[in-house]
Simulated assay, not measured.
Amino acid sequence: MKKILLNLVHPDINQSVVNKRLLDGIKDLENITINNLYQKYPDFKIDAKVEQKLLEENDIILFQFPMYWFSSPALLKEWFDVVLEAGFAYGGSYKLADKSFAVAVSCGGSKEAFSETGKEKKIVEEFLYPFEITANYVKMNYRKPYITYDAEAGLSEETLNLYVKEYVKYIKEL
């Protein structure tokens, strides 16, 4: 069974609705390590060697975060800048080559808003392109993202439960 590293990147997971439920739904799955980056690095001083070791010990690297301004929370960008350094992730040594790279993102807007005819004029996958190209650059296999919508809409228990069920399935299929 493949080992999964879930890098949770939520500035306040305790106040989250969608991401907290998703996390609660998968935390007991076998072979998954949850790495809560905001809890671990509230000062943004990331230990590259610790993070690189985690990456090397796992087969699938999953990033779970809410979409902030059509991207990720700031700590994830800092994590990429510090951890995916030359000599480790690229530039002669591709220590993550052939591992899987996946993204689970929650969007405040609706699926209709994230469409060619909607408010945002683009689908979510287009906003996630920097993650796909990063995976390609370090020779990882980019997987289809898991996307939830309407996080700011006051989702019903039924919808939240469906999201959790779909997320568990998504992770198991990685």
Rank of each mutant, 00 (worst) to 15 (best):
G118N: 11
R143M: 09
I34Q: 13
I133E: 04
E173C: 04
E157A: 14
S72D: 04
Y149N: 00
I4P: 02
K53T: 15
V83H: 01
I61N: 07
G118L: 07
L128I: 11
Y163M: 09
W69G: 02
E56G: 12
K40V: 03
K99Q: 08
K40W: 02
M140T: 03
S100G: 06
I171V: 12
A153W: 01
N161Q: 13
E158F: 01
K165C: 08
E56I: 15
L8Y: 08
L29E: 11
H10I: 01
K20C: 07
N141I: 14
K95C: 08
Y167E: 04
I147T: 03
E125T: 15
A135P: 07
L76Q: 07
I32G: 01
K121E: 12
G87Q: 04
P11T: 11
L155M: 08
A102I: 07
G154S: 08
S110L: 03
L29R: 14
S16D: 02
K165G: 05
E132Q: 14
V105E: 03
S71N: 10
Y149P: 00
A102K: 10
T159P: 02
L62P: 01
I46T: 08
T148P: 02
L55W: 02
V83C: 00
T148F: 04
G118C: 09
I133S: 15
S106E: 00
T159S: 03
S115P: 00
K99D: 02
Y68H: 05
A153S: 15
Y170F: 12
K111H: 05
A48K: 12
V164I: 02
M67R: 06
D98C: 07
D81Q: 07
K99N: 03
G92Y: 01
Q64L: 00
V17K: 10
N141H: 09
Y129Q: 14
F63S: 06
Y137S: 08
F70N: 05
D24M: 14
E112F: 00
P130M: 12
Y94H: 09
G108L: 00
K144E: 07
I26H: 12
Q15W: 02
G109L: 00
L8E: 05
I26R: 11
D12E: 09
K139Y: 06
A102F: 04
E30W: 06
E78R: 14
Y38G: 06
V138I: 05
Q52C: 12
K111V: 01
Q39G: 12
A86Q: 13
A89K: 02
Y38L: 06
V83T: 01
K121F: 09
D59R: 03
K119A: 13
Y137H: 10
V103E: 06
A48Y: 08
K53D: 13
G87N: 06
N31K: 14
E125N: 15
E57C: 13
G118D: 13
G109Y: 03
F44G: 05
E126S: 15
N58K: 09
G108R: 00
V168S: 07
A97V: 07
P73G: 08
Y142F: 13
D24E: 15
F88V: 01
E51N: 14
E158V: 09
Y149Q: 01
M67T: 05
G92H: 01
